[in-house]
Design a protein around this nucleic acid. Structure first.
Lengths: 216, 216
DNA sequence: CTATTTATCTAGCAGTGCTAGAGTTCTTGA
DNA sequence: TCAAGAACTCTAGCACTGCTAGATAAATAG
């Protein structure tokens, strides 16, 4: 099965002898496709065997190129992790929007919280890429990537009805969800009480979110 | 400065030629002292240069023994990280108790939250050992080390006045604090709004903690 | 003083991220 | 059409990692 993947890809594209205007674009597409294969391979291996198993040599084997090719796409290994993280933020945002749609107010809040936890717990490797492993992706700063900000906005949307200082409450909501995910994943909290914890977070926002100018 | 540390240690102990009953105990003490030096070196290097700089070779240099000696104290590198983490839990527990003492009710809650964040933010390497790096330390399970449980109890103590389901609320409080620390440390939340976020968490527990049997 | 156990070290394995320089393939211009 | 130049990819290797087998030195016991 050595090079079937590559063969299929090339069959779907103009022939290699192709001259003229289309050649450059084809190269660009090939490069983009190869880059995507790298990211997909990294993600698949990480999800199956953990991030430690994602070595540059192994990725090179997977895409059937030598190691230096990977470094023509990504500055270093961390940049590959970051690319997976960006995919993760897109999918998390989609999952949160989906969870919010079709309900409003308190129910929307609860559904989003449940969706967030579910996302973090069944895609541990993806979530690690987004929040645990070292990347230099940032939030809340100039130069923040739109993929990251969109996730924040999805949370802000369900939080907004309950507060005036939306940014403060959204950040705190996010932190609570992240903390719940992190502690549960590392076995530091009773798995059976997940729903109770989520209910507490939701209730906290509903009851105390208003007038978020906290006094104390 | 090659072996001054060792010389001082041995000067403070019975002479090397010492025979008889005391010799075995002295050996035990020496071993314990050496083990402590390993953990201290790991922690110091991690705090100064990050955990990536903590290599077994470097620790061996630091304590002036060869690498295999470290493996006679710890099963592997992760076990050294875990030893630092246990120190961290002891110190975090002490810091939280200190913060809780001298105030009650809502103020105790706020002081503990502030102390938790301060701890996480000015000892990042220690906090990583406790919560981020891979160790097999567990909470909320049979076989949990007492050092870990004590930290939970310190949080539970300040939460208890505000709720009936103490375990649920304590876990959620801890998760919120951990999430705030994690997101702030990775630059994913506005540093300037830290106090507002903490105030929200405190207010949430005060206002909605009672009757924690959440409905909805 | 010798034999045995204990403690320690040297040297090395198999793996990592990353890169310089060689080699090949493709594109271009005459 | 064919050589010159550019673009691309590979081989081989560096410096490092965690970890360990086997040799060696030191301490203990008989």
């Amino acid at each position: 099965m050595s090079s079937i993947g590559m063969i299929l890809i090339y069959l779907g594209l103009p022939g290699a002898g192709d001259r003229g205007l289309g050649a450059a674009e084809r190269k660009g597409r090939d490069r983009a496709a190869r880059e995507h294969r790298i990211v997909a391979a990294a993600r698949a291996i990480a999800e199956r065997e953990g991030w430690d198993a994602v070595t540059v040599r192994r990725l090179a084997d997977e895409i059937e190129y030598s190691q230096p090719v990977l470094y023509s796409h990504f500055k270093n290994r961390d940049a590959i992790v970051a690319a997976v993280a960006v995919e993760g933020f897109n999918e998390l945002t989609a999952a949160l929007r989906e969870a919010a749609s079709g309900s409003t107010g308190r129910n929307a809040l609860k559904n989003v919280a449940l969706a967030y936890l579910a996302f973090a717990l069944d895609r541990p490797a993806l979530y690690d890429a987004m929040f645990v492993l070292p990347t230099d992706l940032r939030f809340a700063e100039a130069g923040t990537r739109p993929e990251l900000r969109a996730g924040f906005e999805a949370l802000a949307a369900v939080v907004a009805p309950f507060c005036v200082e939306v940014a403060d409450v959204t950040e705190t909501f996010w932190a609570a969800l992240h903390g719940l995910a992190a502690l549960e994943r590392s076995g530091r909290v009773r798995p059976g009480a997940r729903n109770e914890r989520i209910a507490l977070v939701v209730r906290a926002i509903v009851v105390s979110g208003n007038n978020s100018r906290a006094r104390g």
